[in-house]
Amino acid sequence: MTHSQRFDPARAVEMAKEALQIEAQALQQMAPRLGDSFAAAVHAVLACAGRVAVMGMGKSGHVGRKIAATLASTGTPALFVHPAEASHGDLGMVTAKDVVLALSNSGESDELNAVLPVLKRLGVVIIAMTGRADSSLARHATIVLDSGVAKEACPLNLAPTASTTAQMALGDALAVALLDARGFREEDFARSHPGGALGRKLLTHVRDLMRSGEALPRVSPDTPFTEMMREMSAKSLGLAIVVDAEDRVQRVFTDGDLRRLIERGVDLRGLKAGEVGSTNPKSVPGDALAVEAADLMESARITVVLVQDGEGKLQGAIHINDLMSAKVI
């Protein structure tokens, strides 16, 4: 009988639920153990003039890479140093100004323990994340974070499962505590994620996307209606902006305004631009975030927002398509 023939769907779901329960219980049991040593670890990193060098072998190494990335993206300069490579030159990446975060569930990783004496002679603060307080790693460490678990989610109690989840969560807890202590804000996060959605929302301003100059359908109040319509058609914004001699916005005439005039049977031929449209158009300043313009469009149910300075002078216009092209929305 093949493996697929022996497969029991109900058993698979049962095992999955049990694994999740074991790992969830491991995290719940770890939380009450956080105390002075965790606070000392946060303080040591805050006082660090260099970077956090994260080390770990095997599965702990994979977790360590993620912790280093999380720290770096939340305001704590960090890098991952492979312990095996550290013994062959990469230890030069660590300086006396750095803090080392060393991960090992057993605390007896040969490759990691081999570099600990060198790090101690260098005077580096060593934060150990281990499941054994009596391990070699714990004895060498300046600060010990207890990541121990009662048992692994693996039914054989062999494969690192609950223990790596505990390490990952403890690393996240450290990053969150540091983030809060540094006063790290959304804007700071966006600066380290300029290519992401949040980065675009928090770093892109209206002035970066707005249409300006000759791209604007701009007319004066005495512009004949037919000429205003030609300007609207040529600039493809679905509106015409009526400005005075000093470029202050007087009115906006939209496709919707045109439809309503036609429905009322108004004779359009004798009209001037200054006689039609809205006198209170929606606008934002150029230094507003592009996402603010998007919010205004959504709330007002419009597709174009004007850009004006503090004196009401026209600077540009931004269309919903501009926001979509820039992936702000």
Rank of each mutant, 00 (worst) to 15 (best):
P32T: 05
Q29M: 15
L91M: 14
T303S: 13
V52P: 07
V54L: 13
M168G: 10
A288F: 11
F189G: 01
V45H: 02
N157E: 13
I302Y: 06
A162W: 06
E311F: 05
Q28C: 13
E292T: 12
L289W: 11
G64C: 09
I329L: 15
R33T: 10
G123C: 05
A49L: 00
V115P: 03
S4G: 00
V94Y: 02
T2N: 14
V45E: 02
R139Y: 02
A44I: 01
I127P: 02
P155V: 04
F184D: 09
A72G: 12
G50L: 06
A84S: 15
V52N: 03
P224G: 10
E18S: 15
G50C: 09
M210V: 06
M1H: 11
D222W: 02
A293Q: 04
K151V: 12
A159F: 10
V276M: 04
Q250N: 09
D244W: 03
A86R: 02
E18M: 11
R65S: 04
R65V: 14
E14W: 01
D309K: 08
A181I: 03
L103N: 01
D180L: 12
A159Y: 10
L239S: 12
R65G: 04
R182F: 07
S73W: 10
K327E: 14
C48M: 01
K97A: 15
E246S: 15
N157F: 10
L203K: 03
H82F: 07
P160V: 07
R6L: 14
A39K: 12
L116E: 10
L116C: 11
K201E: 10
M30V: 07
A197H: 11
M324C: 11
A84N: 06
G277R: 10
A234S: 15
N113T: 08
S278C: 13
N280T: 14
A169M: 12
M232R: 02
A141I: 07
G277A: 11
K151N: 12
F80T: 03
S233N: 13
T223K: 08
A326Y: 03
D309S: 06
P32M: 07
I329M: 14
R51H: 07
G183C: 03
L156C: 00
L101V: 12
S73A: 13
D188N: 14
P117R: 04
L258F: 12
A47P: 00
R139V: 02
R65A: 05
R33N: 01
V328M: 03
E275Q: 15
H193Y: 11
T164Y: 05
P285K: 09
G75H: 08
G148Q: 10
T254H: 07
M57S: 15
A133V: 13
A166K: 01
D244K: 01
A68W: 01
T74W: 09
T204K: 03
S37V: 00
L323M: 12
P83D: 05
A300Q: 14
G171V: 08
R185Y: 02
L34M: 11
T130G: 04
L174R: 01
M57C: 15
A288Y: 11
T165Y: 08
G123R: 05
T226Q: 14
R191W: 12
